[in-house]
Each structure stands twice: as C-alpha cells, then as structure tokens.
Design a binder for these strands. Structure first.
Lengths: 181, 181
DNA sequence: CTGCGTGCAAACTGTTTGCACATGA
DNA sequence: TCATGTGCAAACAGTTTGCACGCAG
C-alpha cells in the first residue's frame, strides 16, 4: 500500500527536473515503513538513518524533507515542539488532525471530514489555493494531569531559572502514539 | 474594553508570586492597542517597543511572552514562518483560526464555533484538559499565485525550469466538498 | 559530459540562560 | 528586605548555505 515505488518516485522527480538518488529513495522508504501515525523531525530521521547504517548528512535530510514537502509527498506538521515534523502525505494516507499534550508530547490523531470541508470552503472563499489544513488541539493529557499541572505554570517556575517546562523527559517516551479513526 | 487593567494584571501576577513590572505592563499594553487581528513575533514586539522609545531587552520580551502565554493572557500561534506569534487571549477576544499564505505570510482570520466545538469534544473524549485549539489552513493566496509560486524551497534551489504549481488533488479524494457545510 | 545532489563545515536565526545588578511587594 | 525581574552577552538548537567533489540522466 505504498504510495510510491522507486519507479514512480523517479518519474515524479524527473518530471520536475529533479533526480532520484539513493538518499531520497532511502528517506522515502523510512517514511513508508514508519508505524502509522508517527511523524519525524529532521533530527529524528537523521538518527533513524544513522541507526540503520545509512550515512546521509543532516543537510541532505533537510533538503530532502523540504523537497518532498514541496512535491506533496510529505506533509509538514507544526506541533508544539519548536521544530517541524513530517509524515507521509498521499492519497493512501488518511488526512487527519492532532491532539497534542504540551507537557509530554503524546499525540493522538483523529480525522474529521467536517473540519476538512470547513477548511476547503474557507480557502475557496478567499481564493486561496489550498495546500493543507490542520486542526491542532493543545491540551494536557490525563497522565500528565495526574503528575500535576495546573493550567498556569509549574510550581516553582521562575522567569530567570531554567524552566523545566514542557521538557520532554525522554526521546523514546513518545513512542506510544495512539491513532484513532 | 480591555481585558486587563494594570491593576487586574498586577493581581493576576501577584496571585502566582510574580510581579508587575513596567516592562510587563508596557508589553501587555502593546498587545491591547494592537489593531484587531494582528499577532506579533518576539522580534516584532521588540521592534515596536524600540520604535516607541522603550528600552526592553529581547530576553525580557521572550520571558514575558512565555509568562503571559502560560498565564493564559496571550495565545501562542504556530503559523508557518518558523517562529511563534502571539496575540491577546481573553474572554473579550474572539477565539479564531487562521488561513495563511505560505508564500507571502498574509494571514486571514476567521472564526468557527463548529471547529471550536469539535476541538472541545475531541479533547474531552480523550480526557485531555483543553488549552487551545487552532485550525490553520495553509495555502497560496491569489496575489502570490499570480506572481508564480516558487517558495517553500530554499533560496536558489535549482528547479527554475518548470515552475508550474503543484496540483494538490489529494484533498478532494472522495468526499463531496462541493456542498457548503 | 553536464549540472544537479551530496557532505562538510561554517553561517544564520530564533530562542534560552548564567550572571550581576536593579527593584517590586 | 530579598526573592523576583532585568539587561547583557554568550550559549544553544534547528536550519541554511558556499564550496568542491560525485554521480544521475
């Protein structure tokens, strides 16, 4: 159920004067084999590649993410972490939205035709060419709430101190992403 | 109708052990007197302050934006420009969403009770404590389209040949979005 | 064989932080 | 008074870019 074979990717790239390189092929493959509902930052992707023994430079990762987002192969996400995330964007991928815990970064996906329709209509109404439309809901997940967090600042927060706010505890703590239909 | 007088701001801050300073007061005032619908980046705000003769350091700007966002006084926006934007967030401010041109950054606000309701419901369904809910629609505005669409790729990216617009047809895959919701 | 793509390192942008001093409650 | 807030500069993280070489078309 891969949206692109290396042949179709090549065709897609060549059509626009770009080339199919091993790096681009590898990167697309990573996204294609990613558990449904995951999204990667440039750094994440670079780590994964490195762990797989691929030697692709970080610059190339960035350039490729850019290119693929531009081509519509990837979708660029603005979650609440200060850097962009990317996920596959294809007709085979359900268009969805995100519910994010700003404390632990747990992310729940959900879809809503209604929202998509509103987005489409709104873009049309203004004469915009629609690229993407994302409802992002920021909140505190039940687990984080239990660990204690009021809507305001964490206890002992100081402007001048190191603010341990929203600091993700571990890189692998976000592996438990749920996906709801 | 200002959501906060300096007295109520003071109360709000003191309640949490923070202090009212001239800087904080000034910054809030800038937001309060901002033309409706504008949102500022830290840099924007710093410029404005400087132009007004205020000598508030950039660090303080950042710290204040942070503080006020966490106190719920400001709303943090993730538009598509690589940096955050802030706007007033009060009961008196209509909650709204954004339609952004990824080429020229023109932003159109719109509100939708329906979206807000969907967001609320979705958060509730997952047991999340709702903080904010933003539908952000990315697209190309009519003017930018006329000028031809070349951004999204790094400066000097070599694809200068066929600059044809991408056709994003994945949005209208099956659902009938012709009907207005 | 041409010029796009890559890796590298250095540059850049937006943001955070350590420190000493200033100041609000 | 004294912990909080500020300004400054340096540190930082994420991203970009200039250059020389490598490789796809």
């Amino acid at each position: 159920m891969s949206p692109h074979t290396s042949a179709s990717l090549k065709a897609l790239l060549n059509k626009r004067g770009f080339r199919l390189t091993p790096q681009r092929q590898t990167i697309l493959y990573v996204f294609q084999t990613l558990p449904q509902g995951n999204h990667l930052s440039a750094e994440d992707l670079h780590q994964i590649l490195r762990r797989q023994g691929e030697r692709i430079s970080l610059s190339t990762v960035y350039r490729t993410l850019h290119l693929m987002a531009y081509m519509g192969i990837l979708r660029e996400l603005e979650l609440a972490e200060g850097h962009k995330h990317y996920e596959l964007n294809s007709p085979y991928t359900e268009h969805h939205h995100h519910l994010v815990c700003v404390q632990c970064n747990q992310t729940i996906e959900f879809k809503s035709d209604l929202i998509d329709r509103i987005g489409t209509r709104q873009a049309e109404a203004e004469g915009y060419h629609l690229l993407d439309c994302q409802l992002t809901i920021y909140g505190i997940c039940p687990e984080a709430m239990q660990r204690g967090w009021s809507r305001t600042l964490p206890e002992g927060w100081r402007c001048s101190q190191s603010q341990q706010r929203l600091q993700r505890s571990d890189r692998d703590s976000d592996s438990d992403m749920a996906s709801r239909g």
